[in-house]
Design a protein around this nucleic acid. Sequence first.
DNA 1: TTAAATGCAAAAAATTTGCAGACGT
DNA 2: ACGTCTGCAAATTTTTTGCATTTAA
Lengths: 136, 136
Amino acid sequence: MENYINQLRNYHLKATPQRIAITEALAMYGHLSIEQLYEVLKQKFNSLSLATIYKNINIMMENAFVSEVKLPEQKSVYELTKASHAHLQCKKCHNVWDIHLNLDDIIQNASKNSTFEIESANLVLSGLCENCRNEK
Amino acid sequence: MENYINQLRNYHLKATPQRIAITEALAMYGHLSIEQLYEVLKQKFNSLSLATIYKNINIMMENAFVSEVKLPEQKSVYELTKASHAHLQCKKCHNVWDIHLNLDDIIQNASKNSTFEIESANLVLSGLCENCRNEK
DNA sequence: TTAAATGCAAAAAATTTGCAGACGT
DNA sequence: ACGTCTGCAAATTTTTTGCATTTAA
């Protein structure tokens, strides 16, 4: 909590209660959509406005405190910015997990096959999570 | 052209002039956004409605004739469905290219590090294309 | 001939903006 | 105290829907 206040400040973001709550929610759940963030924070702030979520997520992305994860077949989710990693998306429950693959290898390999100067890689792996796989 | 008519029919899509034109545009340009498709087709059909683009792209995706490519920091583009491949996105000119990497290797490697049953991989590599790199 | 597609207008959904009052620093 | 943030309402943007007419097969 104190921790989140300082983290926000490190990214030049005023530590308002709403922003602290967004940070807490993302730290706890890992990946949330705009609508999910709204539902979670709504518990704590009953006068919360969706516009506040949008404004905050936008400025948090501009300041690289939060990152957007674009996913096939579902709405984007947002996460606290971390070291480069890939994502696992469950096609059944739609939850998202981090997976720590070496994206640099992929970038280097791809660089051999192109004239691009590749700076970053965005990888989403889709399938069934352990839970959903066992359910059927 | 005849060719596109049959391709559309293979995917259970009636070959209307608008759909043929969408197919031609995607075959020619590779990757186009909704708005770009609208602009391109508008040349040919001056009574064209944006709703027609949306309806067609949606049904073409349902029938797997067209695929959506979600990109970091820019609107989705659409392409004719092809064998599995990755994408290169230029951060300057915002154009998109296919790159034929072996995604199966990536999937197998990731599978070792997770309990997921991974079915597919979605990879977008971002950087500068040759043109934009040379311009500065 | 018939089911489906088109284009239009309207509706719905998603996102952004402006502003007055509240709040963090 | 100052500049920024919040919540609200309104505006804008994006996407979908309903319907009359047209069209592909």
